[in-house]
Write a protein that binds this DNA or RNA. Structure first.
Length: 592
RNA sequence: GGUCCGGUAGCUCAGCUGGAUAGAGCAGCUGCCUUCUAAGCAGCAGGUCAUGUGUUCGAAUCACAUCCGGAUCACCA
């Protein structure tokens, strides 16, 4: 039973005893900084059933708690707020829960498994900042769900075929002159992206020419030579034309090597990768099934539809008249495949909020088809990363490239570290590792501290901070503590919980309180699918520690119990920071 | 136009299962390194919580309306 639960129980009993009123759900909130106490119980709602003033009720409950509660020590009442302080022995018990449990904040298996699909890149261009948000969210969520008791399967569905891939293939065929990543010195994904942009440039020129010749723009976009050629290439690919398939293999191979490097660098990986070229034909048997069940219906042109107007959606096409798939057909098939491969209890998709509607439709169809996994499906919809100039567009080259950004962050981390001159004794490998940790710490934290649902702004003119509410601030706190732990080890000081007679310093209580919150936050983050909950927690914990650090002296305190206790506290904080940042995919440095 | 999401300090964001004088960080201004890492700490200043009405003992939080921004409503993915 947690302290909070005991306190709630005591309050419930006190109300029962003094007023003969039963309150089933006692709500406690953390006491505001400017008042004394750690938990606050609001008594306003009780005035209806108990005909006394809020303050009087608070006084009576408080008195009862102070006399009989096993955890509460004293109280004060401000209007309808009963602020409760805990006994020192209670604080020490709370801390020993943290201190003695190596897995504090990691929940035992809940017997459920979940698949998290994220990243899902297109093989016609390199990753950009928006993909980084997706990757970091997916990776972090997977870790958070695992810590909260789920068995997690991370998957990636690579969008490796389609008209957009053919566009870069075509531009390469026409303009490439046999260029390769080796000959150009470009990373393969960047090379493919270059031709994707070149396609768009030429395509636009062609449209412009046709329009100048008097063709309406709408028609021109459909009749420009290169778009027709790209469509032809797609047909050739679908018919397994050896030359086309060879080019496709070659270019995708370059892209995969490029992606591999980027994934390695940012520390993201998958348990299972699906390729759309293998799955794009799936789903047609489900269409047949739906037709025979009358879930779907056919129009005169042979196209297949579903009517979702009763669900508040529209009529949706699920199969073209010529029998070819659309996006939703493939997703139906792929989801079925995932289920037959893994039989998970839940399926999550980390995909931008521009696809909210698509997923509503997908889930509604799955439900109508009576799929057993339909209720476990959930779209983790996140907001776009916008630039001050607006939306990023790959075709127009207005993107913040992932590789460039990471490289730039590493440079900033290096120069900042060198300015401070604290690691002059590091060899180059150690220094490089630190710069990487700091760069990714800053970047990941920047993208994960914001509520995933909200769109966020990135201003390339202002580099991402290393001070204040940032990843490096938290990493710094960790490094500071490690320094203390090393000193304690050298001096032979053991981390020990003090005897029950120990009188705690207020800063110590604050730290224990912050530590005790960790499991609650892990659970909340998992329930809300929000790594930002962990981000904010890690920052709060680091802040409380830095206050503690500035306020008390660890080694020069005359009381040996204090010294040992503070070393123990520091150790627990460092471990909790490491765990919390770990859930965000952020590493911690021993020194910085 | 329909649907969905958002609008909190100059900037970036917390807070949103209703509770105390609305919180951080950045930027600005003051202090604090002969003692455990100053990538830190303490403080000052900065707010019609988009607007209006309602519900309530109490509203940034809930409801309704309005304004502004974004997404989406493709036989694209």
């Amino acid at each position: 039973m947690t302290i909070e639960a005991i306190l709630k129980d005591d309050i419930q009993k006190a109300i029962q005893k003094h007023f003969d009123v039963t309150v089933e759900d006692i709500i406690l909130q953390p006491t505001k900084k400017e008042f004394e106490g750690f938990y606050t119980f609001v008594t306003f709602p009780l005035t209806k059933s108990i005909r006394k003033s809020p303050a009087e009720i608070g006084q009576i409950i408080g008195t009862e708690l102070a006399e009989h509660s096993s955890v509460a020590e004293k109280f004060n009442v401000v209007q309808g707020f009963l602020n409760i302080s805990l006994k020192d022995t209670t604080w020490l018990e709370l801390f020993s829960d943290v201190f003695n449990d190596q897995d504090f904040g990691t929940f035992p298996s809940n017997g459920q498994s979940v698949m998290v699909e994220f990243s899902s890149p297109n093989t016609n261009k390199p990753l950009h900042l928006g993909h980084l948000r997706n990757n970091f969210l997916g990776d972090s969520l997977s870790k958070i769900l695992k810590a909260s008791g789920y068995d997690v399967v991370k998957t990636c569905l690579v969008n490796d075929r389609g008209i957009h891939i053919c566009k870069s293939m075509l531009a390469y065929r026409e303009l490439g002159n046999g260029e390769t990543p080796e000959s150009s010195g470009m990373k393969g994904d960047h090379l493919a992206g270059k031709y994707y942009v070149l396609f768009d440039k030429e395509y636009k020129t062609q449209i412009k020419e046709l329009v100048e010749q008097g063709m309406p723009e709408e028609e021109a976009t459909k009749k420009a030579p290169w778009i027709l050629e790209a469509q032809k290439l797609l047909l050739l690919w679908e018919n397994n034309d050896p030359e086309t398939v060879a080019l496709w293999h070659k270019m995708n191979g370059w892209v995969y090597e490029g992606f591999r490097q980027t994934y390695d660098k940012i520390g993201v990986g998958f348990d299972k990768t699906y390729y759309e070229s293998n799955t794009y034909l799936l789903g047609k048997d489900i269409i047949e099934e739906g037709l025979s069940n009358n879930v779907f219906y056919k129009k005169p042109d042979n196209s297949v539809w579903i009517d979702l107007t009763a669900e508040g959606l529209d009529e949706k096409l699920v199969l073209r008249g010529d029998g070819t798939s659309v996006y939703i057909t493939q997703d139906l098939g792929t989801t079925e495949l995932k289920f037959s491969d893994f039989h998970n209890n839940r399926y999550l998709w980390v995909v931008g909020n521009e696809q909210d509607y698509h997923f509503k439709v997908l889930f509604a169809i799955l439900k109508k088809l009576g799929r057993p996994y339909a209720d476990g499906c959930y779209h983790i919809s996140y907001g776009m990363v916008d630039l001050p100039s607006g939306k990023m567009k790959s075709r127009e080259g207005t993107v913040v490239d992932a590789d460039d950004l990471v490289e730039q962050m590493i440079q900033t981390a290096a120069s900042r570290t060198q300015e401070l001159g604290k690691i002059d004794d590091f060899d180059s490998a150690e220094a490089k590792q630190l710069y990487n940790q700091l760069a990714l710490g800053a970047l990941k934290y920047f993208l994960l501290k914001v509520d995933p649902k909200k769109r966020m702004l990135f201003n390339p003119e202002e580099s991402i901070d290393f001070q204040g509410h940032t990843g490096p601030f938290i990493q710094y706190t960790y490094a500071r503590i490690r320094s203390i732990i090393r000193k304690a080890e050298q001096s032979g000081i053991q981390p020990v919980i003090p005897p029950v007679s120990y009188v705690l310093h207020p800063a110590e209580k604050e730290l224990i309180f912050a530590l005790s919150q960790y499991p609650v936050r892990v659970q909340a983050a998992a329930n809300e699918f929000a790594p930002s909950v962990i981000s904010l927690y890690a920052f709060e914990l680091a802040k409380v520690y830095n206050q503690f650090y500035a306020e008390v002296s660890i080694f020069s305190d005359p009381n040996p119990d204090s010294v040992k206790f503070r070393v123990a506290l520091s150790g627990a904080v460092s471990e909790t920071i490491q765990k919390a940042l770990g859930l965000l995919g952020i590493e911690v440095p021993e020194r910085m």
